[in-house]
């Protein structure tokens, strides 16, 4: 299954949840916010949210800004 993560194509083997993707990216427990197809997925729902072919995932964090 292929999805887009922050605009980059990513290949996932078999079924995966959003929490699995976050773990694979070593972002578990970090201060991030996630959208799938422009809808925010609250942190409490990452474990139960299944990823689907073609999903566009955006993962953001806070950086320096004015």
């Amino acid at each position: 299954m292929q999805i887009l993560v922050n605009g980059e194509p990513k290949e996932l083997s078999g079924q995966a949840t959003l929490a699995d993707l976050i773990a694979e990216m070593e972002l578990t427990g970090k201060r991030i916010a996630v959208e799938i197809n422009a809808e925010i997925v609250p942190r409490s729902q990452h474990g139960e949210t299944a990823l689907n072919e073609g999903d566009q995932v955006e993962i953001v964090h806070a950086i320096g800004g004015g």
């Binding site: 993560v5 990216m25 070593e26 972002l27 806070a62 950086i63």
Partner: peptide, 20 residues
């Protein structure tokens, strides 16, 4: 204190300290 919201890096510097 103001901060900006941006995409996380993918794969690069996973252990990088976070502003927050």
């Amino acid at each position: 204190v103001t901060v900006a919201v941006r995409r996380t890096n993918i794969g690069q510097n996973p252990g990088e300290p976070n502003l927050l």
